[in-house]
């Protein structure tokens, strides 16, 4: 069997002395691992760096086999972000969340496209110049990931009154928005809904808003995609939250 696709390197773990088991998020084949012979050799090490976009050729005798990857780099997002700790942590968080949340070998073209767009935005400072801007895009990417996997949040109208305005909370139970008036008596039990998630396009206005967004998506990612499998949320995401909290002067 053989297929060709484009993929983003999510992770690479050593196998033997120089080979690597590389997990790619591909456009048409979803999250798919494969063996790269000599992947950790001096010559090929740079190809399997997380965040790289690569042309992949996968070969295996049967579809369910691990198979062999032949990779050719198309673009190196990681190399551009190495010097910027904040953006690098956002990239690492997105890759770790994608790998932890997505089922293997299930195509999710929209998640691939969104991750690609997010990495592009991280790389081009003119597209997302401030932490609030790319942080907001990151939160929207996680929201899209939840939606793609069947756990989308309903943020169009209030779950209690049906009104479309003044939505400031999300119910952790129903994953639906709740307006200020209906939610006031239960405010301690509701999750704050940052305003930028209700607007089309663009990032957040402040890093504080991003923090609210990270808490919101973090809650549902953990509840639906990590805890049920007995897995903890990725450390890389926790480090991004720490960085954003520091930028927002908030406790984690």
């Amino acid at each position: 069997m053989e297929w060709r696709d484009e993929g983003i390197v999510l992770s690479a773990r050593r196998h033997g002395e120089t080979s690597a088991i590389v997990t790619l998020l591909t456009r048409e084949h979803g999250c798919h691992a494969g063996l790269v012979k000599g992947g950790f050799s001096k010559r090929s090490r740079a190809v399997i760096e997380p965040g790289n976009r690569a042309h992949a050729v996968w070969r295996g005798r049967l579809a369910e086999h691990l198979g062999l990857y032949a990779l050719e780099t198309v673009h190196c997002h990681g190399a551009i972000l190495l010097d910027d700790g904040d953006r690098l942590s956002a990239m690492a968080a997105a890759l770790a969340v994608a790998e932890g949340a997505l089922p293997e070998r299930e195509p999710h073209g929209a998640v691939f496209a969104a991750l690609e767009a997010f990495l592009d935005a991280l790389e081009h400072e003119d597209l997302a110049p401030e932490p609030a801007a790319w942080g907001g895009l990151y939160v929207k990417w996680e929201l899209g990931l939840l939606r793609q996997l069947g756990f989308g949040l309903q943020l169009n109208h209030c779950a209690a009154t049906g009104v479309a305005g003044d939505l400031v909370w999300v119910s952790p139970k129903s994953a639906s928005a709740v307006c200020r008036e209906a939610g006031e008596p239960y405010r301690d039990r509701l999750l704050p809904l940052p305003g930028f998630l209700l607007a089309r396009g663009g990032g957040a206005g402040t890093v504080g808003e991003v923090m609210k967004g990270l808490r919101l998506t973090g809650y549902f990612l953990d509840r639906h995609l990590f805890s049920p499998h007995g897995r903890a949320m990725p450390q890389a995401r926790a480090r991004l939250v720490e960085r954003m909290a520091r930028l927002a002067n908030e406790p984690v």
Binding site: G78, L82, D83, G85, L88, M91, A92, A236, R243, R246
Partner: peptide
């Protein structure tokens, strides 16, 4: 090292 993990660690230490 000039890898994502290496530089993530460097930024963490710098902090």
């Amino acid at each position: 090292n000039a890898t994502v993990d290496g530089q993530t660690t460097a930024h963490y230490i710098a902090e």
